[in-house]
Amino acid sequence: MGRIFLLIATNIAVMLVISVVVSLLGVNRYLTANGLNLTTLLIYSAVIGFTGSIISLLMSKSMAMWSTGARLINQPSSSTEAWLVSTVQTLAQRAGIGMPDVAIYNGEPNAFATGASRDSALVAVSTGLLDSMTKEEVEAVLGHEVAHIANGDMVTMTLIQGVVNTFVVFLSRIAGYLVDSFLSKDEENHRPGIGFEIASFVFQILFGIGASLIVAWFSRRREFRADAGSARLLGHKQPMINALARLGGLHPGALPSDLAAAGIGDGSQLSALFSTHPPMEERIRALQNLR
């Protein structure tokens, strides 16, 4: 249960911080001076909703490197590192994207891709993944990550997060205004105050939980596409099926919450509704049915 609250808190933390800052600057007082101006409120909500998501996207590579302790392979120091770089390069060429940076980090079996664009991305694999899988299975995992990049999944998820954040801010302000108006004793000369701020804050958290469910659902859909993308890049689906089956018998390493949706597997113990990845059995079944 604690991991669920951590995920929710991560998704809405930046939004809340920005909301507090603009409130201190007096923007909320301007919005409510003569009743809510819905057009202005929507613009305000979009600025808050998208700012955090876009900043996170632009910083995603450096934050991923920092949070996992990953090491870029600039000059391969072993045959394994040389093979990793060569394999990612081949897959990237097949997918028609720029060569991603390649990194290794110490940890349980997992891998992830992140970055602000198709031609400026990062693919990282854990030492646990390299130690527990065959080369063919690792290649399939790398194909999965390259497919995420080729599909533009990082940008897509940023836009989805920005949209739902916008509606969270927009609806929470409206709900807060209605609650404050209902509790006001002087309806004719009503000016929203602390009641509006508190109610908006509470509703922002509640609506943020709903937003997390929507984002997690979209994240699960894109995993099926990346699995199928790996099968196309490799020319057959069995390596990806084998990799998922192998991963299903292991314990995927839990990535930092801001990278949870980027991994090959979900190492957390979240409820299925909050999970960023479908169950391995569903992913394998979808690949088996792929034509």
Results as ranks from 00 to 15, higher is better:
Thr156Pro: 00
Leu25Asp: 01
Arg191Cys: 01
Gly35Asp: 11
Ile241Gln: 06
Ser120Met: 10
Ser86Ile: 07
Ala262Tyr: 12
Val125Met: 10
Lys185Ser: 05
Asn106Ala: 11
Leu31Glu: 06
Pro192Ile: 07
Leu233Ala: 08
Asn74Lys: 15
Arg3Asn: 01
Ala262Met: 14
Arg71Lys: 13
Gly176Met: 09
Thr51Ala: 13
Leu58Pro: 01
Tyr30Ile: 11
Ala175Trp: 00
Ala216Arg: 04
Phe170Asn: 02
Trp66Thr: 03
Ala261His: 09
Leu290Arg: 05
Asp186Met: 13
Gly210Val: 01
Gly52Thr: 02
Met157Phe: 03
Thr87Cys: 01
Asp186Tyr: 10
Pro256Asp: 14
Ile104Phe: 12
Ala226Arg: 05
Ser79Tyr: 11
Ala95His: 08
Val14Arg: 09
His251Cys: 03
Thr90Gln: 11
Ala46Trp: 04
Gly195His: 04
Gly229Asp: 09
Ala82Val: 11
Ala33Glu: 12
Val138Thr: 07
Met63His: 06
Ser126Leu: 15
Gly115Tyr: 08
Gln269Trp: 03
Ile194Gln: 10
Leu244Lys: 04
Gly52Ile: 00
Leu178Glu: 01
Val27Lys: 01
Gly176Pro: 12
Phe218Leu: 07
Arg232Ala: 13
Ala64Thr: 08
Ala33Val: 09
Met133Ile: 07
Asn242Ala: 15
Val138Asp: 02
Phe196Pro: 05
Leu57Cys: 07
Ser62Met: 10
Glu139Gln: 07
His251Thr: 12
Ala245Gly: 11
Gly96Glu: 08
Thr87His: 06
Ser181Thr: 05
Asn74Pro: 12
